[in-house]
């Protein structure tokens, strides 16, 4: 009598199916890594696109939120993946959170202003406007209160 083995009679699986089964067993794939990176950098894009919304650019809320969510997802990918490349990429992604926080809160700090040296009044100097016209500030000041706005420059 011939006995057939169910395993021997079953048709061979297609390569894609076996690869899919193998990759699902190794945790998140490169698609998850790329999506996670996209989420991480979406905050930077939102920060630039929404820069006219005062509280958003001053607090950095979209930037910090995307970095935090990206770091959480990346950490999860690194812990669940068995592939070295995925784990390295995910750890690098997660490191963007402390780097981003450092850049936004520490590296971006400006030097504290010093006390204005105006004991003798506003300096008696003449500056030129964008058309090259001379402007003598003490003369303008005599006309009434003046709001001086110092821009960072290098636009």
């Amino acid at each position: 009598m011939l006995h057939s083995s169910p395993e021997r009679d079953s048709p061979p699986q297609a390569d894609g199916a076996s690869a899919s089964a193998a990759s699902s067993g190794r945790g998140p794939g490169w698609a998850a890594v790329l999506l996670c990176l996209g989420l991480t950098f979406s905050g930077a894009a939102a920060y630039l696109l929404l820069i006219d919304i005062h509280w958003m650019h001053r607090s950095g809320a979209p930037l910090i939120a995307s970095l935090a969510l990206g770091a959480f997802w990346a950490t999860r990918n690194a812990l669940r993946s068995r592939r070295r490349g995925i784990r390295i990429a995910s750890v690098a992604n997660a490191m963007l959170l402390p780097l981003g926080l450092y850049a936004f809160f520490v590296a971006a700090r400006l030097p504290a202003p010093t006390r204005p040296d105006l004991a003798a009044g506003i300096p008696d100097i003449t500056l030129h406007d964008q058309q090259g016209r001379p402007v003598h500030l003490p003369t303008i000041l005599k006309q009434g209160p003046l709001l001086l706005v110092f821009y960072r420059g290098h636009w």
Binding site: L110, P111, P113, P116, I122, L141, K142, Q143, G144, P145, L146, L147, L148, V149, F150, Y151, R152, G153
Partner: peptide, 10 residues
Amino acid sequence: AVPSHFLLDS
């Protein structure tokens, strides 16, 4: 310059 505003009287 550090971005700043100064309101001065006459």
